[in-house]
Amino acid sequence: MADTPVLEVEAVSRVYRKGGFFSGQKFKAVDSVSFTLPATPQVYSIVGESGSGKTTLARMVLRLVDPSSGSIRLLGRPLTGKGPDRIDTLEFRRLVQPIFQNPFEAFSAYLPIEDYLRRTALNLKVAQSVEEADALSDKALRSVGLSLERIAGKYIRQFSGGELQRISVARALIPSPKLIVADEPVSMVDASLRMSIVNLFRTIVEEQGVSFIYITHDLSTAYYLSDQVAIMNQGSVVESGVPTDILDHPSQAYTRELMAAIPTVGERWPELDAINQRFPATEDRQQSV
């Protein structure tokens, strides 16, 4: 159905044992987290420090680990269990794509970049021939400001971190996913390029209809990018809502600590001026900074 949510996370927890399998000590990396991404494409940011549980939550959405309890549904269908309506692995990999923190670890150092993109299209069976795979790769690359001709014959060592992260985004777009899970995607990119990547995500949401889960420790980029923000601490969501509400009326001391890292008057980022010009709708946010 057209109004079916893209993602429904319901009371999801992930428990690990401390000290090995036979240890009685348990640690809840994620504790009863719930949220929904509606059918309308949007960016849902999960913000927290290292150890807050945000990456474990992302790994459950990516089906890299199973929840200890709770459920996750994609387009109304379960990601876990063995029921007949469960999404199989190939379909899941087409619908949900990751973008990881370190772009230099996202590609093989022994393959030209275009070979990696070609294999993505062929392995996911969204292309039936090399020619079709190359056409899909070129289309995805052009949507991030590159082209197949520009990257042809080059290896990862011949690209900057910012270029490689754009190529990571292009690779994720090849199967036309419904959801991209981006885990700290700008933390290893030069500060001068971070807003260009953030801008790119927003453009993809608006022009290609892809939803994002944006995992970050940086409330400032989440604030400017997101439609909804969830603040995680010690495995739990301590508050969530529209970014302007979180910034103007934080209810938790932990959120106020994260806000302390956001530039204030006299410490403006030039990149933020650029993004405000790109997205005039965020003018009310600009006045709050």
Rank of each mutant, 00 (worst) to 15 (best):
D134T: 11
S288P: 00
L164N: 04
A127G: 08
E131T: 15
L124R: 03
V189Q: 09
A133G: 07
G48H: 00
L272V: 15
A133P: 13
K178A: 14
E8N: 07
S187D: 05
I46S: 05
D31H: 00
K54G: 04
P243N: 06
M259Y: 07
S137C: 15
T244V: 10
P41Q: 05
T282K: 14
D218S: 09
R119E: 12
Y214P: 01
V130S: 15
Y16W: 12
G162L: 09
A170N: 13
E207D: 15
M188K: 13
L146I: 10
A170Y: 09
S147P: 12
G83A: 09
V169E: 04
Q228I: 08
L74G: 01
R93T: 10
G70Q: 03
V181F: 07
D183T: 04
M195V: 14
G209R: 02
F100Q: 10
K82I: 09
I99F: 12
L146Q: 12
R278P: 05
L64F: 11
L247R: 13
P177E: 02
L272M: 15
K178D: 04
T4M: 07
L117E: 02
V242C: 08
P185F: 04
I213R: 00
S71N: 09
F100H: 06
R285K: 14
A135C: 13
S220H: 12
V65K: 00
F22Y: 12
G162Q: 07
R93M: 13
N199L: 13
F35D: 00
A261N: 11
P103Y: 07
T216Y: 05
E207Q: 13
Q234G: 08
R63G: 01
Q228S: 12
E283I: 14
G83D: 12
T36P: 02
D66A: 15
S288A: 14
M232V: 11
L272F: 11
E207M: 09
R171H: 10
D66F: 07
N123W: 11
D85G: 09
L62I: 11
P280M: 02
M1H: 07
Y224M: 10
R157D: 13
I72K: 02
P41C: 06
V186P: 00
P103L: 13
T36Q: 05
S211P: 00
T120G: 01
L193G: 07
Q234V: 11
S160L: 15
I87E: 03
G241S: 04
K139S: 15
K26E: 13
N123E: 11
P270T: 10
Q42E: 15
K54D: 00
A281W: 12
P263D: 07
T80V: 12
R94M: 14
H217Q: 11
A58C: 07
R118Y: 10
D227V: 05
A29Y: 02
R63N: 05
P84H: 09
G53C: 04
G153Y: 03
Y44A: 03
G145M: 12
L74F: 02
F201L: 06
S288I: 08
Y214C: 01
E206F: 09
T36R: 14
R63P: 02
M259P: 02
L136E: 02
P103R: 06
Q101T: 01
M259V: 15
L62P: 00
V6E: 04
P38A: 12
Y155C: 04
L219S: 04
R73K: 12
L247Y: 15
R17F: 01
N233Q: 14
R202F: 09
S137R: 06
